[in-house]
Simulated scan of single mutants.
Amino acid sequence: MADTWPRTHRQWLIADRPNGRPLKDSDFELVTRDIRAPEAGEVVLRTHWLGFDPAQKGWMENVGGYVAATNIGDVMPGSGIGSVMASEHPKFAVGDIVAGRFGWQEFPTVAGDELERISDPEMATARLGVLGTTGMTAYFGLLRVGKPQAGDTVVVSGAAGATGSVVGQIAKIAGCRVVGIAGGAEKCRWIVDECGFDAAIDYKAENVRDRLGELCPDGIDVVFDNVGGVILNDMLAKIAMHARVVICGGISRYTLGKMPAGPENYFNLIFMRATMQGFIVLDWVSEYPMARRRMAAWIREGRVRTREDVQEGFENAPRTLMRLFAGENLGKQLLQVG
């Protein structure tokens, strides 16, 4: 391999399982290892960006079973953007910019078949957010599970997050009235002033159930929940007839350090003839190219706006993930590796 780049690199490993509690520094171990030369079908990458999602804590816990199980000592899984430094794969050349799930490591050696080339470097970080799994989650969760109709009232929890903010904007494109629930005045201003939500509820300063009653007098047609717990319970109390409740995530589970109690108002699903459905976005992976084209067009047209919360330094990867659970990020959480 070339002498112009290092022979060793740093990796973050899983050191403990954070089951039933919040993340802490000792859940991760920083190690230095040799960079492995690529074998047939592999490439060596220089990691430029890492993306962060609440689901990563669940991967450490081996919750859900929809991704490969992790072991103590494994490289921490996660998505990134990198450039090809050496290639033994016919589809990739040195200098190509690629996206993939290659984990928290500076110079990963990975199978080329697991990577996607990014044709527009200016949109590279968008592949970790609005054009990546985050945006696809918003797109398919709302349109395929929530099935919004023009004139519907849509309420989104975790509305200032990378997924929730895009859900609300797609709902506006679909002709809906959108209310977002977020934590803090700055986040509430952003989703209304920049993302075009019709109203916002600051759960840190307002009574969520009372405000839902004021803002949604005819009930909620589509609930898109990223939080769970008490806020989901408050939304279920205000659903309209034939409402669709979309269960995307449950960040309150991570914040509380335990599974929250089941919603007290689930019987409203019966009274209002409503449905509640969870989903995993991987069910629509074959349709990602179509959804990305539509999303990219909406971005160019100014109909979808995004925001990135950028931290810096590979050594700060664990703390960057923890920001999600403290509600410190505004928009997609990214780390610029160096």
Rank of each mutant, 00 (worst) to 15 (best):
residue 4 T to E: 09
residue 4 T to W: 10
residue 7 R to P: 00
residue 12 W to P: 00
residue 15 A to V: 05
residue 20 G to F: 06
residue 28 F to K: 03
residue 33 R to Q: 11
residue 35 I to F: 08
residue 37 A to D: 11
residue 37 A to M: 04
residue 42 E to F: 06
residue 46 R to A: 13
residue 50 L to S: 04
residue 53 D to Y: 03
residue 54 P to I: 06
residue 55 A to S: 13
residue 61 E to P: 00
residue 61 E to F: 00
residue 64 G to R: 04
residue 66 Y to G: 03
residue 67 V to S: 02
residue 70 T to D: 02
residue 72 I to V: 15
residue 72 I to A: 01
residue 73 G to R: 04
residue 73 G to C: 02
residue 74 D to S: 02
residue 75 V to Y: 01
residue 77 P to D: 06
residue 77 P to L: 08
residue 78 G to A: 06
residue 81 I to Q: 01
residue 92 F to G: 07
residue 95 G to P: 01
residue 103 G to E: 10
residue 112 G to S: 12
residue 113 D to S: 09
residue 116 E to N: 07
residue 122 E to G: 08
residue 124 A to G: 03
residue 124 A to K: 00
residue 127 R to D: 04
residue 133 T to A: 10
residue 133 T to G: 01
residue 134 T to I: 07
residue 134 T to E: 02
residue 135 G to I: 14
residue 135 G to K: 03
residue 136 M to A: 12
residue 137 T to E: 06
residue 138 A to W: 04
residue 138 A to H: 01
residue 141 G to S: 09
residue 142 L to A: 06
residue 143 L to I: 14
residue 145 V to T: 13
residue 152 D to A: 12
residue 153 T to Q: 05
residue 158 G to W: 06
residue 158 G to I: 11
residue 160 A to Q: 09
residue 165 S to P: 01
residue 167 V to N: 03
residue 168 G to V: 12
residue 169 Q to G: 05
residue 171 A to V: 13
residue 172 K to L: 05
residue 174 A to N: 10
residue 174 A to V: 12
residue 175 G to E: 06
residue 177 R to K: 15
residue 178 V to M: 03
residue 181 I to W: 09
residue 184 G to T: 13
residue 185 A to I: 11
residue 189 R to C: 12
residue 189 R to Y: 12
residue 191 I to E: 10
residue 192 V to P: 00
residue 197 F to N: 07
residue 197 F to I: 10
residue 202 D to I: 10
residue 203 Y to E: 09
residue 204 K to S: 11
residue 204 K to H: 12
residue 205 A to W: 09
residue 206 E to N: 04
residue 214 E to D: 14
residue 215 L to V: 13
residue 220 I to W: 08
residue 222 V to A: 02
residue 224 F to I: 06
residue 226 N to H: 11
residue 227 V to I: 15
residue 227 V to P: 00
residue 228 G to L: 03
residue 239 I to A: 02
residue 246 V to E: 05
residue 247 I to M: 13
residue 253 R to T: 14
residue 258 K to H: 15
residue 259 M to G: 02
residue 265 N to E: 09
residue 270 I to D: 04
residue 273 R to F: 12
residue 278 G to C: 07
residue 278 G to E: 05
residue 281 V to M: 01
residue 282 L to G: 07
residue 283 D to C: 00
residue 293 R to S: 13
residue 293 R to A: 15
residue 296 A to V: 04
residue 298 W to Q: 11
residue 299 I to H: 04
residue 303 R to P: 00
residue 305 R to H: 14
residue 308 E to G: 00
residue 308 E to W: 00
residue 309 D to G: 02
residue 312 E to F: 02
residue 316 N to T: 15
residue 317 A to H: 05
residue 318 P to M: 08
residue 323 R to V: 05
residue 323 R to S: 11
residue 324 L to R: 01
residue 326 A to N: 15
residue 333 Q to D: 02
